[in-house]
């Protein structure tokens, strides 16, 4: 029994961290925010050369044959960097769902493209047809009741809309769904897509909470009031300590979810519900404390903090709010207790 990631997974994490910190500076992120819908990615090729998008594609289609446990640390890094790319959709949900439920033709057409990093995927699994990167994606994975559809760009009608985080490039989408777009008419497939999305987003949120905690720690060390760093005041120290505890708790559940999904455990969905709810709460706590402890400067557009604050607020609700996941978790555990 061993609950930790292995050396190779940590090395891969370090490589991703190195590239993202070199290639995605806060100044670069700021420029991407200013571009909004006119974004043309310079980051994606770096992710491709790292081998990130291909990792979960089956070897037979040119991918890395990995499992969710292999990407959990990498997604934490993507959240830490506030990566403005649909990496969970493209690098996790799409390869998992296509390789497990896709038709032979869909697999043959799309898995090699995903492995080569030549396709960007967006998803529309919830009730609203609000899709991050909806106008830019080469394909959108769409849920309609118990069906999943794989909708190529030609069958997507996307109207860009403005959100608080311009690097998500939201679009309101209409889809031409038909027999030719059907991927699976199977609630299992829908659940697999939702679980993958919630798990992946929970890993992003843990990384994002980590970044907010570190940024705030740095600010508390730097900012002087009453003749000393404000980080020496216990009221502030304790507040940030609570955030650190919540983040580590969430990280532990997210790691477990990565393992349960990789093993195909019977409790995988339950593990995902816990991971996403805990990551939502940790990211919320980090977000709340970061803005408060930065004082006035955090409220400006000029300071970089708000990139993480606004991304966090968006991700807290994508692929399921805390209430959504805890309601599902309660239904699951209480069915055994109060049958």
């Amino acid at each position: 029994m061993h609950f930790d990631l292995d050396e190779l997974q940590y090395e891969f994490r370090d490589a991703v961290r190195k590239v993202l910190s070199a290639e995605l500076s806060p100044a670069h992120l700021r420029a991407i925010w200013e571009e909004g819908h006119d974004y043309s990615s310079t980051i994606w090729p770096h992710l491709v050369s790292l081998g990130l998008p291909e990792l979960l594609v089956p070897g037979a289609h040119g991918g890395g044959d990995g499992a969710p446990v292999d990407v959990v640390l990498l997604l934490e890094e993507c959240g830490y960097a506030c990566l403005p790319e649909p990496i969970v959709e493209t690098g996790l949900i799409a390869p998992l769902v296509l390789s497990r439920f896709g038709t032979e033709q869909q697999q043959a057409e799309w898995l090699p493209r995903l492995a080569a990093g030549e396709a960007i995927v967006a998803t529309c699994l919830g009730e609203d047809h609000l899709v991050a990167d909806g106008a830019r994606a080469d394909a959108v994975l769409v849920r309609k009741d118990d069906e999943l559809h794989w909708v190529p760009r030609t069958a997507v009608h996307a109207t860009p809309v403005e959100g608080i985080d311009p690097s998500r490039r939201l679009a309101l989408c209409e889809f031409e769904l038909g027999a030719d777009t059907l991927l699976a008419a199977d609630p299992e497939a829908v659940r697999a897509a939702q679980d993958a999305g919630a798990f992946g987003t929970s890993a992003l949120l843990v990384g994002l909470a980590q970044r907010l905690t570190e940024t705030t720690r740095d600010y508390l060390l730097e900012r002087q009031q009453f003749g000393r760093p404000i980080g020496s005041f216990q009221a502030l120290k304790h507040r940030l300590a609570d955030v650190a505890v919540q983040t580590e708790a969430a990280r532990s559940l997210v790691w477990y979810a990565s393992y349960a999904l990789s093993e195909g455990s019977a409790d995988a969905s339950r593990a995902v519900h816990m991971a996403k709810a805990a990551a939502n709460e940790a990211a919320f706590a980090a977000n709340y404390a970061a803005l408060q402890l930065h004082g006035g400067i955090g409220f400006t557009w000029e300071h970089d903090l708000h990139f993480w604050l606004q991304r966090g607020k968006a991700l807290e609700r994508s692929f399921g709010s805390t209430a959504h996941h805890r309601t599902a978790l309660a239904d699951d555990i209480l069915a055994e207790v109060w049958s």
């Binding site: 720690r217 060390l221 980080g231 120290k237 940030l240 300590a241 650190a244």
Partner: peptide, 12 residues
Amino acid sequence: RNIISERVLGLP
């Protein structure tokens, strides 16, 4: 909380 803020987070 003191221990966490000092030894984990590196606050003074």
